[in-house]
Design a protein around this nucleic acid. Sequence first.
RNA 1: CGGGGAGUAGCGCAGCCUGGUUUAGCGCACCUCGCUUGGGACGAGGGGGUCGCCCGUUCAAAUCGGGUCUCCCCGACCA
Length: 479
Amino acid sequence: MQNETTVKEIPSKKDNFSEWYTSVILKAELADYAPVRGCMVIRPYGYSLWENMQNSLDRRFKATGHKNAYFPLFVPESFLKKEAEHVKGFSPQVAWVTRGGDEDLTERLAIRPTSEAIICSMYAKWVKSYRDLPILINQWCNIVRWEKSTRLFLRTTEFLWQEGHTLHRTETEAEEEALKMLKIYVDFAENDLALPVIYGRKPESEKFPGALRTYTFEALMPDGQAIQAGTSHNLGQHFAKAFEIKYLDADNTEKYAWGTSWGCTTRLIGAIIMTHGDDSGLALPPKVAPIQVVIVPILYGKDDEKVLNKAKELKEILGENYRVHLDDRIEYTPGWKFNEWELRGVPIRLEIGPKDIEKGQVVLVPRDKTGKPAAKETEIVRVVGAMLNDVQKNLFERAKKFLEENISEAETIEEFNKQLAQRPGFIKIFWCGKQECEDVIREKTKTTPRCIPLDETDKGKCIICGERTETIVYYARAY
RNA sequence: CGGGGAGUAGCGCAGCCUGGUUUAGCGCACCUCGCUUGGGACGAGGGGGUCGCCCGUUCAAAUCGGGUCUCCCCGACCA
């Protein structure tokens, strides 16, 4: 008999999405509320997930020639003010330090909302010649943005991210870099996080403050809202001019360098949770899951030692290739553990009991519960590997299907709103490029332009003014 | 920022309207013993609380009044 009160209950994902989201995070022990408004503690299980994501991305950054470095948390106010658009964009969200010890500071220090200013000030010192370029640096750090309303992982006052900051000799090279990093993000999101995305350029109104062009990749959440998963900016020479980053080119003339910056954050964890989870809890993509295989020994009393030894042996064998956890707690029944590890999103559960030992097999159950196949013990490494791949693939395919089913097209505002009501998601439209027309769309649909796709070309008429155009824009409500 | 809701044991809640009969209670969790264990077992016994915080009213405050902090939901804003 199931005693309802012993169960870690979570609200229905379908009926109560917001509460489901918060509840899963707390119960799976990914994070907890900190005693500081808008801040969270990322607990070991959640941090382990982040570390795996970091490793995946970091590998890609290094493979494309980037190196990690670290710059200060504090940004002098005068530095932040050097790029006009930049300071305008960020000042409402900046936290300031005005006092150190028992002395007032002569200049306020911003707690970095992003590091362009402090990093560019250093780049100005380091760049003299075209031979000093490119500079390809990334940093992993924390960021503070004083947000009015917050949600675990999706928007917190302090969050973790990586920010790449590069400098180049030419405009072309900077543009190539910005696009290259966008593609790396897309690859990471789709292949490692199983998050299908759309990607492209932001319209002027949605650009990063201080950028020449902003590229973005966006995922679609189950409630039909888009989430900006990360961005890559071509900064042009805006920051180089503001911070006097000049180099002497081969033709003996002084030129401003071209910059990029690109980043993604712990917000991605929120996207993973929302996309893959279900009423049983989390479902983590195998490639970044803190635990890929959890071993649950079935203990009866008599053969316990034999079963435990076998479980340990399996852990050793699988541990060479996968992230494995053996749940040998005696205070919980197997059934309790099954539910617990499903809630925590572990991709594969491995059961081993006396009956299995007799037959020389183990029971493997993927998180999506597609049956309970028994695998021969001798083939376990291969079978587990294949199953992890399957789970990874299934998560992606399911999310991809959802994304595709929720992209619709509209030629008029009426059609736009009708589509949005029927199946909330991305609405694809044509746009002439005029700000007035964009404002009308925002006003009448309560959505925002998410991106102008890069690899998609077509001709049509602006949804507002009817002017002929080749500019496609994906609109959606957004987080 | 606007509207609504919440804060009482680790978690989930009752008590509050009508202040004192509650030594603040219940379920789960936790500890001990027994019995169990392939989808969230059971029995007996036990430990655990300055009722978010501050101020006020009162002989007396979890309960009434004011303030404040934090969280949740909906919306606005923001990226």
